[in-house]
Write a protein that binds this DNA or RNA. Structure first.
Length: 744
DNA sequence: TAGTTGGGTTTTTTT
DNA sequence: AACCCAACTA
């Protein structure tokens, strides 16, 4: 029996039609990833295509990783040379090699949303734009929209047509790009734009990649924007072996430029395309599918298809309305704990979905109260946290002194008594000479205006230079440890009475572990590689699956996942569909997008679906009274196990009081909310400067490097430095507090 | 220069 | 409710 026998007819067609353009319209749960991976295996095993010539592109690292793993399990070897990545990493890889052709340095850094905002703030200051009238974010949104459509500043300028606000944006767009270029930085959108630009201006480079990628597969095609479309179109132009997989009903990223026409008009761009529809669902029970079909059937702009299953009717959909969000959370958590007790479900079988990240908080409180393990996916990206960004700014500075933003971020963090006045003076000097901020610091002695700050700047520059030279000898992890010790970052945190100082320290510890595992997984792991990897992780990539925990996430994050038991909470008009979509200029269109989101949510459920809503809910400090979601009302009554009934609890008032005051919260022994919420075990920071229990000549053991002999142990300024000669890993110098060496 | 405080704003979703 | 920022004070 071969891997192809268990496929249905349509799936087989998808696997075997390897030549020419293919559009796979794959409904939710129809096994599209399976078709995609089997197709790749077929290309390699049967068609004898060199894995090197295959490209599979997705949106998240998680999806890419899963795809690679599945292909690996099917083909004997060679799978490691398939190019399986995300759009963004693909672009970075190409640009790292060739972006000098566009006048950038190949050592460019990648700016996240935070950095973009800082840049924009400066641009606005420079152009004297009042950010109270036009907000940075709306300017950035306009620029992002333009970039997604591959509209350059020049093109944008031509399209002003006398429109005042467009004229303003046009100027901002120019300045913003200039600022990025000066810092040798690209934002997320630039990654795509510049890759396309590169291909357009260097046909010989494009040709190389066209020769390489003879077979291209694109997952989640409905979420591609114009830039992504163009990138793929260029790459596929020569061989035209392009297979795109998507579901127009699951297009939920219009707000970030996804162009649903890419999938709807595929046959116009590729008239010879073979279109295959996958409508058999292997995931959910009939009741769940009927509900999904009933809801999505209300959308007008879509390719008609109806999902079916042979999994059986299954249980009905549960619908519950509560007085307020506390009771809603209480019910959901109780229900999950009941299922666990009954043996109906494990914690990891359950997922709670909501429209906005803020809705997680109340559920979290309840989980903590009941002592049930849970994990929140997303929210604030780990790498966007202040302490992490600070450390990364050091690394960026060490790696690429041209990123002024990074240098300015850390110039006075931890405090070195370098204030705004000094920074401005340095900046003036840098601007005058057209050099980078960091280079200006290195020339601090040449700046007469500085006065006694000069010394402080010199100390800073010397420290960075020292890191740079040590970098040659050190590994990545050692460098980070050195940075946090030498700069006194950890010391400052430990000394501070800030409430979440401990959490921050733990986060830094976590960063070190991430660096260590990156170092382990990559040979020749460079600082640049690490910074790049870190810049492109998505919330969902960080999800630990099957940690025996209930998962909480937004409906958007849930796309592509499935769970036996799904809870959709906050099913209220104004929350879901969101107020923004109801109040939009084009509500029909916006609500259709929300409806697709509802469709995505429902079709995550394998067996059991529960929808909940509350009559009353606090949003941004204001109490809102919401009716049940219109989407709920679109579900035929016979699919529900009950009518809408409100549960009223006498205890509600009392219990509300209980878990709003922190003192009354029964914490899990030995832990606290923060570590619990982060889903990690709080490892804490070992004390620094404490004499280790080993000495010169002793045999010790390290988590990563294994056993070795201590060659030297000397008291440094902050902590003991220990030099160990590891049997397999060679000689390493490390701080005793971090090395966590065990005497053997 | 650093820390505090009061006022104003806010994301809905994210690579 | 939470966060960010500008202005004010030590």
């Amino acid at each position: 029996m071969s891997i192809y026998d268990t496929l249905n007819e349509q799936q087989k067609k998808g696997v075997f039609t390897t030549e020419g353009p293919v559009l796979l319209l794959a409904g939710a749960g129809s096994g599209k990833t399976r078709v995609l991976t089997t197709r790749i295996a077929y290309l390699i095993e049967e068609k004898k295509v060199n894995p090197w010539n295959i490209m599979a592109i997705t949106f998240t690292n998680k999806a890419a990783g899963e795809m690679r793993e599945r292909v690996e399990n099917m083909v004997g070897f060679g799978s490691e040379s398939i190019w399986v990545t995300t759009f963004h990493s693909t672009c970075v890889r190409i640009l790292r090699r060739y972006i000098d052709r566009l006048g950038y340095d190949n050592h460019f850094t990648i700016y996240d949303t935070d950095d973009q905002k800082s840049v924009m703030k400066e641009v606005c200051k420079k152009l004297q734009i009042d950010t109270k009238q036009i907000k940075e974010r709306s300017l950035l949104a306009a620029i992002s929209a333009a970039k997604n459509e591959l509209i350059s500043p020049e093109k944008y300028e031509k399209n002003i047509m006398g429109d005042y606000s467009r004229k303003k944006i046009s100027g901002v767009y120019y300045e913003y790009q200039a600022a990025l270029r000066k810092n040798n930085a690209l934002d997320f959108d630039d990654l795509l734009v510049k890759a396309v630009e590169l291909f357009q201006s260097c046909p010989e480079i494009l040709k190389d990649y066209q020769e390489r990628f003879r077979y291209i597969c694109v997952d989640e095609y409905q979420d591609t924007n114009t830039a992504q479309f163009e990138l793929i179109r260029l790459l596929a132009e020569k061989y035209r072996n392009i297979c795109v997989v998507g579901d127009d009903d699951q297009s939920i990223y219009k707000f970030r430029g996804a162009n649903i026409r890419n999938i709807l008009d595929f046959e116009k761009v590729y008239p010879e395309a073979v279109v295959i529809k996958l409508e058999q669902n292997y995931r959910s029970t009939q009741n769940v599918l009927d509900a999904a079909n009933a809801i999505i059937g209300n959308n007008r702009s879509r390719k008609k298809k109806v999902l079916w299953t042979d999994k059986g009717i299954g249980s009905k959909i549960h619908l519950k309305q509560f007085e307020n969000a506390y009771e809603e959370a209480e019910f959901v958590v109780d229900d999950i704990s009941r299922k666990k007790r009954d043996g109906t479900a494990e914690y990891s079988d359950c997922a709670i979905l909501y429209r906005t990240n803020a809705q997680a908080r109340m559920l979290e409180e309840r989980f903590v109260l009941q002592g049930i393990p849970y994990n929140v996916v997303g929210g604030t990206n780990f790498y966007a946290r202040r302490e992490i960004k600070d450390i990364l700014a050091y690394l960026k500075t060490i790696d690429n002194g041209r990123d002024d933003l990074a240098v300015r971020r850390i110039i006075n963090v931890p405090r070195r008594g370098i204030g705004l006045t000094t920074v401005l003076k340095v900046q003036d000097y840098a601007e005058e000479r057209e050099i980078s901020f960091y280079d200006a610091i290195r020339e601090a002695e040449q700046i007469p205006a500085l006065g006694k700050s000069t010394g402080k700047l010199t100390v800073f520059a010397t420290m960075i230079q020292a890191f740079r030279s040590k970098q040659e000898v050190y590994g990545l992890t050692d460098l980070i440890k050195d940075v946090i010790v030498t700069t006194g970052y950890i010391n400052e945190l430990e000394a501070s009475d800030e409430e979440d100082a401990q959490t921050r320290i733990e986060n830094i510890d976590e960063l070190i572990s991430k660096a260590a595992s990156f170092e382990n997984a990559t040979d020749q792991a460079t600082l640049t590689d690490f910074l790049e990897e870190v810049a492109l992780v998505a919330d969902i990539d960080e999800m630990e699956s099957d940690g025996g925990k209930v998962l909480l996430m937004t409906l958007h994050s849930a796309k592509g996942l499935e769970f036996p038991h799904v809870y959709m909470t906050g099913m209220e008009d104004g929350i879901f569909p969101s107020f923004m979509s109801i109040a939009a200029d084009n509500p029909e269109e916006e609500i259709e997008e929300e409806r697709r989101l509802a469709y995505v949510g429902i079709t995550r459920a394998r067996e059991d679906l529960t929808m909940t809503c509350a009559k009353q809910r606090m949003i941004r400090g204001e109490t809102q009274y919401n009716a049940a979601s219109r989407f709920v009302k679109e579900i035929p009554l016979e699919l529900l196990d009950n009518r809408l009934t409100t549960r009223r609890k006498v205890l509600a008032a009392a219990s509300v009081k209980n878990y709003t005051s922190p003192e009354n919260r029964p914490y899990i022994a030995g832990g606290n909310t923060a570590t619990f919420a982060a889903g990690g075990i709080g490892k804490g920071m070992p004390a620094m400067g404490v004499m280790p229990d080993y000495g010169e000549g002793d045999r010790v053991k390290h988590v990563k490097y294994g056993e070795g002999t201590v060659l030297a142990l000397e008291q440094g300024p902050k902590d003991y430095q220990v030099t160990v000669n590891f049997d397999s890993a060679g000689q390493k110098i490390m701080y005793a507090a971090f090395a966590k060496l065990v005497k053997v």
